[in-house]
C-alpha cells in the first residue's frame, strides 16, 4: 500500500478517535444524551472497510456506528448535530447516536436491535440484484449478533440466492459483558459463516491495511457475482460497552494487552519507521482534525432544536398518491 493510502487510513482513524474523545466530554456536559457506544479501539475496521466500497454501494450498521458514518463520508457536523438532537442532524433529531441515517449516501442506519440490520442488508442486495445493478451492500454487526436467529437465517438466504452482501462481523470478543466464549460453543466465527456456503475468513481488525485488503478482495469477489462474503474482523473496544460500566467482565490486563495493539500508534510507528511520516505531517493531521471538530461542534451548537410542533412528522409519508 502506498504512502498516500496509508496516510489516508491514519487520518481517518485519528478523525474518528478525536471525534469520540470529544463526544465523551460533550456527554459529560449533557450536550449528548441517551445511549452512546464508543468505537475507540476499533477504528481500523471502519477506516478499512468503508472507503473500500464503491460509489452507490449500500451500508447497514449498528448502534456503534459513529466510525462507520464518518468513514463513509457523512459530514461530522451532521453526525454531531444528530447527537445534539438538532434539525441539522442527519436524522433530524429522531435518531440520536444509535440511529444515524443518510439516504443519499445509502447509509441505512444505525440499528439498535442486535442482528436487526442483517435482513435489511439482504433485502437491499436483493433489490440491487433484481434491478441489475452491480452494487454491494456492506452489513456491519458485532459478534453478539451471531447468537441471534436472524444472523443464521440471513447468511443462509444470502448464500442461497447468491446476493451481493458483504457481511462484516466486528468481533470485539464481547457482547456487553458476555465474552464470546461464554456465549458460543464454537468461537471461530469465520468457520461458522463458511458453513453457509460463502467465502469467510478472519482478518486482523487492528490493522487497517489488512482490513482494506480483505475488503477489497471480498468486494471484488461479490461484484463479480460470486455471492456473499463474510469477514470476521477481530478487534477490541478499549472502553466500556456504553458510556459507563464497571468492566467487571474482563481483566484490566487483557485490556492493556489489546491497547498495545492500538491501530493508531501502530500505524503511526510503522509509517515513521518507513520514513513516510514526520512530526510535522502528524501535527498537520491533528490540527486539521481539530479544525473539523471545532466546526462540527459550532454547527451542532448553532443548530435549531427540532420543533415540538413537528413531533408526529415522519410517521407516514407526507404525500400519498
Amino acid at each position: 500500500m502506498n504512502v498516500k493510502e496509508r496516510e489516508r487510513l491514519l487520518r481517518q482513524m485519528i478523525r474518528i478517535r478525536r471525534f469520540e474523545e470529544r463526544c465523551v466530554e460533550l456527554y459529560s456536559d449533557s450536550k449528548i444524551r441517551g445511549f452512546m457506544h464508543l468505537y475507540i479501539g476499533e477504528e481500523a475496521v471502519a477506516a478499512g472497510v468503508l472507503p473500500a466500497l464503491g460509489p452507490g454501494d449500500a451500508v447497514v450498521s449498528t448502534y456503534r456506528e459513529h466510525g462507520h458514518a464518518l468513514a463513509l463520508g457523512i459530514p461530522m457536523e451532521a453526525v454531531l448535530a444528530e447527537m445534539y438532537g438538532r434539525t441539522n442532524g442527519c436524522s433530524r433529531g429522531r435518531g440520536g447516536s444509535m440511529h444515524l441515517f443518510d439516504a443519499g449516501r445509502r447509509f441505512y442506519g444505525g440499528n439498535a436491535i442486535v442482528g436487526g440490520g442483517l435482513p435489511l442488508a439482504v433485502g437491499l442486495a436483493l433489490a440491487d440484484a433484481m434491478q441489475g445493478k452491480a452494487l454491494v451492500t456492506a452489513c456491519l454487526f458485532g459478534d453478539g449478533a451471531v447468537a441471534e436467529g436472524e444472523f443464521h437465517e440471513c447468511l443462509n438466504l444470502a448464500a442461497l440466492w447468491r446476493l451481493p452482501v458483504l457481511f462484516c462481523c466486528e468481533n470485539n470478543f464481547y457482547a456487553m459483558g458476555t465474552a464470546l466464549r461464554r456465549a458460543q460453543a464454537q468461537t471461530d466465527l469465520a468457520l461458522r459463516a463458511s458453513s453457509y456456503g460463502m467465502p469467510a475468513w478472519p482478518v486482523d481488525g487492528m490493522d487497517p491495511v489488512a482490513v482494506t485488503e480483505a475488503t477489497e478482495r471480498a468486494v471484488e469477489s461479490i461484484r463479480g457475482g460470486a455471492g456473499p462474503c463474510f469477514l470476521e474482523l477481530r478487534t477490541y473496544r478499549f472502553r466500556a460497552h456504553s458510556m459507563y460500566d464497571a468492566e467487571r467482565y474482563r481483566a484490566k490486563s487483557e485490556v492493556e494487552e489489546w491497547r498495545q495493539r492500538d491501530p493508531i500508534p501502530r500505524l503511526t510507528e510503522s509509517m515513521r519507521n518507513d520514513g513516510e511520516l514526520d512530526d510535522a505531517a502528524l501535527a498537520a493531521i491533528e490540527s486539521e482534525v481539530e479544525e473539523e471538530l471545532a466546526a462540527a461542534i459550532a454547527a451542532a451548537e448553532a443548530g435549531a432544536p427540532e420543533p415540538v410542533e413537528g413531533l408526529t412528522r415522519f410517521v407516514y409519508a407526507e404525500r400519498r398518491p
Binding site: 441505512y108 436487526g116 435482513p119 439482504v122 433485502g123 437491499l124 433489490a127 436472524e150 437465517e153 438466504l157
Partner: peptide
C-alpha cells in the same frame, strides 16, 4: 425474520 426483513430492505432499495 429474514424474508420479511429482506422485503423491507428491498422496499428501501
Amino acid at each position: 425474520s429474514a424474508f420479511v426483513g429482506a422485503g423491507i430492505g428491498a422496499a428501501l432499495g
